[in-house]
Protein backbone atom coordinates (compact mmCIF):
# COMPACT_ATOMS: atom_id res chain seq x y z
CA UNK A 1 0.00 0.00 0.00
CA UNK A 2 1.16 3.55 -0.73
CA UNK A 3 2.25 5.86 2.06
CA UNK A 4 -0.44 8.49 2.88
CA UNK A 5 0.49 12.07 1.95
CA UNK A 6 -1.64 13.61 4.71
CA UNK A 7 -2.16 11.87 8.02
CA UNK A 8 -4.26 13.43 10.77
CA UNK A 9 -4.01 11.96 14.26
CA UNK A 10 -6.36 12.84 17.13
CA UNK A 11 -6.72 16.39 15.87
CA UNK A 12 -8.60 18.80 18.18
CA UNK A 13 -9.22 22.51 17.88
CA UNK A 14 -11.28 24.89 19.98
CA UNK A 15 -12.00 28.60 19.83
CA UNK A 16 -12.37 29.64 23.44
CA UNK A 17 -14.97 27.32 24.94
CA UNK A 18 -16.26 26.24 21.56
CA UNK A 19 -14.79 22.82 20.65
CA UNK A 20 -14.94 22.87 16.87
CA UNK A 21 -12.84 19.76 16.16
CA UNK A 22 -12.95 17.07 18.81
CA UNK A 23 -10.94 14.01 17.79
CA UNK A 24 -10.16 13.43 14.14
CA UNK A 25 -7.96 10.68 12.77
CA UNK A 26 -7.93 10.19 8.99
CA UNK A 27 -5.52 9.90 6.11
CA UNK A 28 -5.30 11.00 2.47
CA UNK A 29 -3.40 8.94 -0.09
CA UNK A 30 -1.61 10.46 -3.09
CA UNK A 31 -3.96 10.97 -6.04
CA UNK A 32 -7.08 10.69 -3.92
CA UNK A 33 -9.92 13.20 -4.15
CA UNK A 34 -11.57 13.60 -0.75
CA UNK A 35 -14.82 15.55 -0.51
CA UNK A 36 -15.74 16.76 2.96
CA UNK A 37 -19.44 17.41 3.39
CA UNK A 38 -21.68 18.08 6.33
CA UNK A 39 -23.88 20.68 7.98
CA UNK A 40 -22.69 24.26 8.42
CA UNK A 41 -20.81 24.86 11.66
CA UNK A 42 -19.69 21.23 11.75
CA UNK A 43 -15.99 22.21 11.58
CA UNK A 44 -15.29 21.44 7.89
CA UNK A 45 -13.47 24.70 7.10
CA UNK A 46 -11.59 24.66 10.38
CA UNK A 47 -10.45 21.12 9.64
CA UNK A 48 -9.19 22.13 6.20
CA UNK A 49 -7.38 25.16 7.61
CA UNK A 50 -5.68 22.94 10.20
CA UNK A 51 -4.19 20.87 7.39
CA UNK A 52 -1.89 23.73 6.30
CA UNK A 53 -1.71 25.25 9.76
CA UNK A 54 -3.63 28.44 8.93
CA UNK A 55 -5.24 27.42 12.23
CA UNK A 56 -3.00 25.99 14.92
CA UNK A 57 -4.49 22.78 16.38
CA UNK A 58 -4.84 22.57 20.17
CA UNK A 59 -3.75 18.95 20.20
CA UNK A 60 -3.05 16.02 17.90
CA UNK A 61 -0.82 16.01 14.84
CA UNK A 62 -0.98 16.77 11.16
CA UNK A 63 1.61 14.87 9.16
CA UNK A 64 2.39 16.01 5.64
CA UNK A 65 4.65 13.81 3.56
CA UNK A 66 5.85 12.08 6.72
CA UNK A 67 6.62 15.26 8.67
CA UNK A 68 4.60 16.38 11.69
CA UNK A 69 3.73 20.00 10.90
CA UNK A 70 2.78 20.87 14.49
CA UNK A 71 6.35 20.34 15.71
CA UNK A 72 8.17 22.17 12.89
CA UNK A 73 9.53 25.72 13.04
CA UNK A 74 7.90 28.51 11.06
CA UNK A 75 10.44 28.39 8.25
CA UNK A 76 9.86 24.70 7.63
CA UNK A 77 6.08 25.16 7.80
CA UNK A 78 6.34 27.92 5.17
CA UNK A 79 8.24 25.52 2.92
CA UNK A 80 5.67 22.76 3.32
CA UNK A 81 2.79 25.18 2.71
CA UNK A 82 4.16 25.76 -0.79
CA UNK A 83 3.26 22.12 -1.49
CA UNK A 84 -0.34 22.57 -0.33
CA UNK A 85 -2.25 24.92 -2.58
CA UNK A 86 -5.35 26.46 -1.09
CA UNK A 87 -8.43 27.94 -2.73
CA UNK A 88 -10.75 30.08 -0.61
CA UNK A 89 -14.45 30.73 -0.67
CA UNK A 90 -13.81 34.48 -1.09
CA UNK A 91 -11.06 34.04 -3.77
CA UNK A 92 -8.69 36.37 -1.84
CA UNK A 93 -7.00 37.62 -4.99
CA UNK A 94 -4.64 40.55 -4.41
CA UNK A 95 -6.72 43.52 -5.62
CA UNK A 96 -3.74 45.78 -6.28
CA UNK A 97 -2.16 43.40 -8.79
CA UNK A 98 -3.16 42.22 -12.24
CA UNK A 99 -4.19 38.61 -12.80
CA UNK A 100 -0.72 37.82 -14.11
CA UNK A 101 0.98 39.51 -11.17
CA UNK A 102 -1.24 37.63 -8.73
CA UNK A 103 0.03 34.35 -10.15
CA UNK A 104 3.68 35.41 -10.50
CA UNK A 105 4.11 36.87 -7.00
CA UNK A 106 4.72 33.72 -4.95
CA UNK A 107 6.87 31.83 -7.51
CA UNK A 108 9.12 34.91 -7.79
CA UNK A 109 9.27 35.91 -4.11
CA UNK A 110 9.27 32.44 -2.56
CA UNK A 111 10.89 30.22 -5.15
CA UNK A 112 13.10 32.94 -6.60
CA UNK A 113 11.90 32.25 -10.13
CA UNK A 114 12.95 34.87 -12.66
CA UNK A 115 10.38 37.13 -14.28
CA UNK A 116 10.45 35.51 -17.72
CA UNK A 117 10.00 31.98 -16.38
CA UNK A 118 7.25 33.05 -13.98
CA UNK A 119 5.42 34.90 -16.75
CA UNK A 120 5.63 31.88 -19.05
CA UNK A 121 4.33 29.56 -16.33
CA UNK A 122 1.52 31.98 -15.43
CA UNK A 123 0.33 32.08 -19.04
CA UNK A 124 0.33 28.27 -19.19
CA UNK A 125 -1.78 28.08 -16.04
CA UNK A 126 -4.16 30.78 -17.26
CA UNK A 127 -4.52 28.79 -20.46
CA UNK A 128 -5.37 25.75 -18.38
CA UNK A 129 -8.22 27.62 -16.64
CA UNK A 130 -9.28 29.26 -19.95
CA UNK A 131 -8.49 32.82 -18.87
CA UNK A 132 -5.31 33.75 -20.71
CA UNK A 133 -7.09 36.68 -22.39
CA UNK A 134 -7.59 38.24 -18.93
CA UNK A 135 -3.90 38.20 -17.95
CA UNK A 136 -3.64 41.99 -17.61
CA UNK A 137 -7.02 42.58 -15.98
CA UNK A 138 -7.39 43.62 -12.36
CA UNK A 139 -9.38 41.26 -10.09
CA UNK A 140 -12.14 43.86 -9.62
CA UNK A 141 -13.08 43.50 -13.30
CA UNK A 142 -13.51 39.71 -13.13
CA UNK A 143 -16.70 37.76 -12.49
CA UNK A 144 -16.77 35.45 -9.46
CA UNK A 145 -16.20 32.35 -11.59
CA UNK A 146 -13.27 33.97 -13.38
CA UNK A 147 -11.77 35.17 -10.09
CA UNK A 148 -11.98 31.68 -8.57
CA UNK A 149 -10.32 30.15 -11.63
CA UNK A 150 -7.50 32.71 -11.32
CA UNK A 151 -7.20 31.75 -7.65
CA UNK A 152 -6.85 28.10 -8.64
CA UNK A 153 -4.19 29.01 -11.20
CA UNK A 154 -2.39 31.07 -8.55
CA UNK A 155 -2.31 28.09 -6.16
CA UNK A 156 -1.14 25.76 -8.93
CA UNK A 157 1.75 28.11 -9.74
CA UNK A 158 3.64 26.78 -6.73
CA UNK A 159 3.39 23.21 -8.14
CA UNK A 160 1.68 21.83 -5.03
CA UNK A 161 1.38 18.14 -4.23
CA UNK A 162 -2.05 18.66 -2.67
CA UNK A 163 -4.83 21.15 -3.35
CA UNK A 164 -7.18 22.24 -0.56
CA UNK A 165 -10.53 23.74 -1.59
CA UNK A 166 -12.54 25.62 1.04
CA UNK A 167 -16.09 25.88 -0.33
CA UNK A 168 -14.79 27.17 -3.68
CA UNK A 169 -18.24 27.66 -5.24
CA UNK A 170 -20.27 28.88 -2.25
CA UNK A 171 -19.81 32.58 -3.06
CA UNK A 172 -20.63 32.18 -6.76
CA UNK A 173 -23.74 32.89 -8.76
CA UNK A 174 -25.29 29.53 -9.82
CA UNK A 175 -24.42 29.94 -13.49
CA UNK A 176 -20.73 30.27 -12.62
CA UNK A 177 -20.44 27.18 -10.46
CA UNK A 178 -20.03 24.90 -13.48
CA UNK A 179 -16.95 26.57 -14.93
CA UNK A 180 -15.11 26.27 -11.60
CA UNK A 181 -16.16 22.66 -11.01
CA UNK A 182 -15.03 21.78 -14.54
CA UNK A 183 -11.56 23.12 -13.80
CA UNK A 184 -11.49 21.13 -10.57
CA UNK A 185 -12.64 17.97 -12.30
CA UNK A 186 -9.93 18.34 -14.90
CA UNK A 187 -7.39 18.74 -12.14
CA UNK A 188 -8.65 15.56 -10.51
CA UNK A 189 -8.41 13.73 -13.82
CA UNK A 190 -4.75 14.77 -14.06
CA UNK A 191 -4.14 12.93 -10.76
CA UNK A 192 -3.98 15.85 -8.35
CA UNK A 193 -4.52 14.97 -4.69
CA UNK A 194 -7.43 17.11 -3.49
CA UNK A 195 -9.33 17.78 -0.28
CA UNK A 196 -12.53 19.63 -1.10
CA UNK A 197 -14.99 21.13 1.37
CA UNK A 198 -18.18 21.72 -0.59
CA UNK A 199 -21.95 21.58 -0.71
CA UNK A 200 -21.93 20.41 -4.35
CA UNK A 201 -23.26 16.88 -3.97
CA UNK A 202 -23.09 16.25 -7.72
CA UNK A 203 -19.37 16.97 -7.68
CA UNK A 204 -18.95 14.65 -4.67
CA UNK A 205 -20.80 11.86 -6.43
CA UNK A 206 -18.95 12.07 -9.72
CA UNK A 207 -15.42 13.10 -8.78
CA UNK A 208 -14.70 12.01 -5.17
CA UNK A 209 -12.82 8.86 -4.29
CA UNK A 210 -13.97 9.10 -0.69
CA UNK A 211 -16.62 11.18 1.03
CA UNK A 212 -15.98 12.28 4.60
CA UNK A 213 -19.15 13.25 6.40
CA UNK A 214 -18.37 15.71 9.15
CA UNK A 215 -20.64 16.95 11.94
CA UNK A 216 -20.31 18.04 15.57
CA UNK A 217 -16.53 18.08 15.41
CA UNK A 218 -16.08 14.48 14.28
CA UNK A 219 -15.75 12.69 10.94
CA UNK A 220 -18.92 10.68 11.36
CA UNK A 221 -18.55 8.60 8.26
CA UNK A 222 -15.79 7.84 5.71
CA UNK A 223 -17.13 6.03 2.66
CA UNK A 224 -17.15 5.78 -1.11
CA UNK A 225 -19.57 8.26 -2.68
CA UNK A 226 -21.81 5.47 -4.03
CA UNK A 227 -22.13 3.83 -0.63
CA UNK A 228 -22.51 7.12 1.22
CA UNK A 229 -25.28 8.54 -0.92
CA UNK A 230 -27.20 5.29 -1.41
CA UNK A 231 -26.64 3.64 1.93
CA UNK A 232 -25.45 6.04 4.69
CA UNK A 233 -24.35 4.24 7.85
CA UNK A 234 -25.03 6.79 10.59
CA UNK A 235 -28.30 8.40 11.60
CA UNK A 236 -26.57 11.79 11.53
CA UNK A 237 -25.72 11.29 7.84
CA UNK A 238 -29.17 9.96 7.00
CA UNK A 239 -30.72 13.01 8.62
CA UNK A 240 -28.38 15.34 6.70
CA UNK A 241 -29.00 13.68 3.36
CA UNK A 242 -32.75 13.63 3.86
CA UNK A 243 -32.66 17.40 4.26
CA UNK A 244 -30.62 18.21 1.17
CA UNK A 245 -31.59 15.56 -1.35
CA UNK A 246 -35.01 16.03 -2.81
Amino acid sequence: MTKPIIEVKNLAKSFGKNDVLKDITEQVNPGQVIVVIGPSGGGKSTFLRCLNLLETPNSGEVDFDGQNLTTLDTKKVNELREQMGMVFQGFNLFPNMTVLENIKLAPMKVKGMDDAAATKRAHELLDQVNLDDHADAFPSSLSGGQAQRVAIARALAMDPKVMLFDEPTSALDPEMVGEVLNVMQELANQGMTMVVVTHEMGFAKSVADRVWFMADGYIQENNTPDEFFSNPQTDRAKDFLSKILM
Binding site: N52, L54, T74, K75, N78, E79, R81, E82, Q83, M84, G85, M86, F88, G90, N92, L93, F94, L105, A106, K109, V110, A151, R154, A155, M158, L164
Partner: peptide
Protein backbone atom coordinates in the same frame (compact mmCIF):
# COMPACT_ATOMS: atom_id res chain seq x y z
CA UNK B 1 -8.78 41.73 4.81
CA UNK B 2 -7.39 38.73 6.72
CA UNK B 3 -8.04 36.66 3.60
CA UNK B 4 -5.17 38.48 1.90
CA UNK B 5 -2.74 37.33 4.57
CA UNK B 6 -4.15 33.80 4.49
CA UNK B 7 -3.86 33.60 0.72
CA UNK B 8 -0.25 34.75 0.84
CA UNK B 9 0.65 32.42 3.71
CA UNK B 10 -1.03 29.48 1.95
CA UNK B 11 1.28 30.14 -1.00
CA UNK B 12 4.26 29.60 1.28
CA UNK B 13 5.16 33.27 1.80
CA UNK B 14 6.71 34.10 5.18
Amino acid sequence: DDGQTEAARSLGMS
